[in-house]
């Protein structure tokens, strides 16, 4: 056996298992997703029929609630997008000489570590009509601001976005802290000698220095908000009606409540495309804006 053949054999051998796992657990389900999206499978019958692109037609022409759910994803997207400057500012402060910064650095990540189900249940009680939040408003003599936070369709999505921000902002802050700490201190020293103030240093050193992290967080934001599931599912189950449903909550209902696995598969494919398209658009906007 010559050296080249041995080399190829070794490479192939060691790649075989990871590739096989990738094929079985990723490629095959993806292929099946595409296959089911063209069928009317109900999820439990032994057979199904191929119906072409009918599922996609149904989504675009006959499923108003899909678009309502997607609109609700928009609330999460805007909320998390708007929170990024705040997250960078917090990270920047925690990297500076703030008293107790070590303590705050560790505590800021806590919400992300706590089990999502526990978070959802805790906030369900907190935002219930006789829950903690309304009690706080009472204590502050702001009773006129009391709301049915999880029942009124005018505020329900804001409540859920707040919970989502509470849970995930800490993770982003930790990413930004890591990015800021990787910026050489000499840059700041040089800027200080040149007479730059704190804001100028933040604007011209910190932000460009963590550009890669910002891109990462933006990507995680797109992927995360489009896949938003546990918080609305556990706190409101998408209700009342579909007022707080998200794309994935809607998809799960289609698949398991109404036995439309074919349609749900088509929704899954749409989700993939929307994620890719929004991400590409976002990247282009970032490039254009320099």
């Amino acid at each position: 056996m010559n050296y080249s053949l041995q080399r190829k054999l070794i490479i192939f051998s060691f790649l075989f298992i990871p590739l096989a796992l990738l094929g079985v657990f990723m490629l095959l389900p993806t292929f099946k997703l595409f296959q089911f999206s063209l069928t009317d499978w109900d999820g439990y019958s032994k057979s199904f029929q191929y119906i072409g692109l009918d599922n996609f037609k149904t989504i675009f022409l006959d499923s108003g609630d899909v678009w309502l759910s997607l609109r609700n994803n928009g609330y999460y997207f805007i909320g998390h997008l708007a929170a990024i400057p705040f997250e960078i500012a917090v990270a920047s402060m925690l990297c500076g000489a703030v008293i107790g910064s070590r303590f705050f650095k560790s505590i800021v990540f806590m919400p992300y570590i706590i089990n999502g189900v526990a978070v959802a249940l805790a906030f369900s009680f907190f935002f219930s009509p006789s829950g903690g939040f309304n009690a706080i408003l009472d204590a502050l003599h702001l009773s006129s601001l009391k709301q049915d936070w999880l029942g009124d369709y005018r505020v329900i999505n804001f409540t859920l976005v707040f919970v989502s921000l509470w849970r995930y902002c800490g993770q982003h802050v930790v990413f930004f802290i890591a990015g800021i700490m990787s910026i050489p201190k000499e840059y700041y020293e040089a800027a200080e000698i040149d007479g730059a103030n704190k804001f100028q240093m933040f604007r011209h050193i910190t932000v460009p220095g963590i550009k890669t992290i910002i891109e990462l967080v933006l990507f995680l934001n797109v992927r995360g908000v489009l896949a938003a599931f546990e918080i609305p599912f556990l706190m409101t189950n998408g209700g009342p009606g579909y007022e707080s449903s998200t794309f994935v909550v809607y998809t799960v209902k289609e698949a398991f409540q109404f036995s439309h696995v074919g349609l749900a598969s088509a929704l899954g494919i749409m989700l993939m495309f929307i994620t890719v398209v929004v991400y590409i658009l976002q990247k282009k906007i970032i490039r254009i804006s320099g």
């Binding site: 029942g151 369709y153 209700g239 009342p240 009606g241 109404f258 036995s259």
Partner: peptide
């Protein structure tokens, strides 16, 4: 028919409670 039309009375009841 219920599955096809997504007829869910309880969900509509929730909407009524929400004032719809």
């Amino acid at each position: 028919l219920s599955n096809e039309t997504k007829w869910d009375g309880n969900a509509i009841g929730q909407q009524m409670l929400a004032g719809k």
